Simulated assay, not measured.
Amino acid sequence: MRIRATVAAVSGALALSAFVVPAAHAADGSATPSKADILKLREAAHGASSGKTAFAASDDSGSPYAMDVTFSNFKIAGAVKVGTTNHVSTTVTYTLTHGSDVDITADDFVTGPYLYKGSYDTPDNMLFGNAPATCKITSSTTASCTGLIDIYPGPDDEELVNSDAGTWHGAALAIAYNGQDPNSADFDITKVGYADQGGLGTTLVQRNSTLTVNASPEPVTKGRTITVTGKLARANWEDHHYHGYTGQSVKLQFRKKGSSTYTTLKTIKTDSTGNLKTTTTASVDGYYRYSFAGTTTTPAVNAAGDFVDVQ
């Protein structure tokens, strides 16, 4: 089941647009927590621990108790490339350590990793996984867990805006519902255990990039001028199209026919629409490409080499 959240700044306040967590199996096996139920749980837990919440307070019905669970050894890819429409997921592993009074094998105990942008207490945005993590018990008080972060940039979900690109922080949470059904009139939030820990690691969530190249004329006489054009573009998470990445340094590289190594000929910058254009002198048969080193918001990318026959 999807565990996913998007938090957007609206009129200076943080508003939740979606938040779904793994199903909690109530004592009668009936209930799955709603978005509002889970929001209230997280909100209440954070409010109790910090005196303030990332979201608007809903009521004063209490808060979950602090569960004796901590997280460590959080590992995630150094960067996650996200395009304009396709679902992207990345694997996270971490160690869950718990007290002897916490039953992580219970049907209604769930845990999962997530990412947050900005402050842990008042995040600008959060990204979760579609399903709870799976955990393998490694001792009486520890487990090795694996989960996914699922990202949906498409127009139907709009989990990201362009300013979200860059560094995100890793976190993990665990919830023990202890037979409580969030959809029941008898739901007692104070009987629910909750643990949530931020600052476990970092990753880059990047706007995916594309790079093209075209060298002409083909074929060309040795000693004549070759014009090499191309374009560097990156995903726009707000209109779901690719647009030119302006003012970026890009290397023109050449690989001689029969060689496996590219050599940099020169470095130029993209223009106001992301286009590239330069010239070089034809010498021998080989492949020309553009190469972009990347930034914190946009991944490195190489164009496929364009072969030029020199006669």
Rank of each mutant, 00 (worst) to 15 (best):
L173R: 05
L173W: 13
L173T: 06
I175D: 10
A176H: 05
A176D: 15
Y177W: 15
Y177N: 07
N178H: 07
G179N: 02
G179P: 00
G179M: 00
G179H: 03
G179R: 01
Q180M: 08
Q180P: 09
Q180Y: 02
Q180I: 06
P182F: 01
P182W: 02
P182Q: 07
P182A: 05
N183H: 02
A185E: 12
F187D: 02
D188M: 01
D188L: 01
T190I: 08
T190L: 09
K191T: 03
K191I: 04
V192C: 06
V192S: 04
V192H: 08
G193R: 01
G193E: 10
Y194T: 02
Y194R: 06
Q197S: 08
Q197L: 01
Q197C: 05
G198K: 01
G201R: 03
G201E: 03
T203A: 04
L204W: 00
Q206I: 06
R207E: 10
S209E: 02
T210K: 14
T210M: 07
L211Y: 06
L211S: 04
L211R: 03
A215N: 01
A215V: 04
A215L: 03
S216W: 02
S216R: 08
P217H: 02
P217S: 00
E218Q: 12
E218A: 12
E218R: 10
P219C: 08
V220M: 01
T221F: 00
K222N: 13
K222M: 07
G223V: 07
G223D: 09
R224H: 11
T227Y: 05
T227F: 06
G230T: 12
G230K: 10
K231I: 05
L232W: 03
L232F: 12
A233K: 14
R234L: 11
R234V: 12
R234T: 13
A235F: 12
N236P: 11
N236H: 13
H240W: 11
H240R: 14
H240P: 09
H241R: 14
H241D: 15
Y242H: 13
Y242A: 07
Y245I: 08
Y245A: 15
T246F: 06
T246D: 14
T246L: 07
T246P: 05
G247P: 06
G247Q: 13
Q248P: 10
Q248N: 12
Q248W: 10
S249R: 12
V250R: 04
V250H: 03
L252I: 11
L252C: 12
R255T: 09
K256A: 14
K257D: 11
S259R: 04
S259Q: 08
S260A: 15
T263K: 15
T264R: 13
L265A: 04
L265N: 09
K266H: 05
K266E: 14
T267V: 14
I268M: 08
S272N: 13
S272T: 10
S272E: 11
T273F: 05
T273A: 11
G274V: 06
G274W: 05
G274P: 04
G274F: 08
G274A: 12
N275P: 01
N275S: 14
N275H: 12
N275D: 15
N275M: 02
N275W: 00
L276Y: 04
T279E: 06
T280Q: 10
A282M: 03
A282T: 00
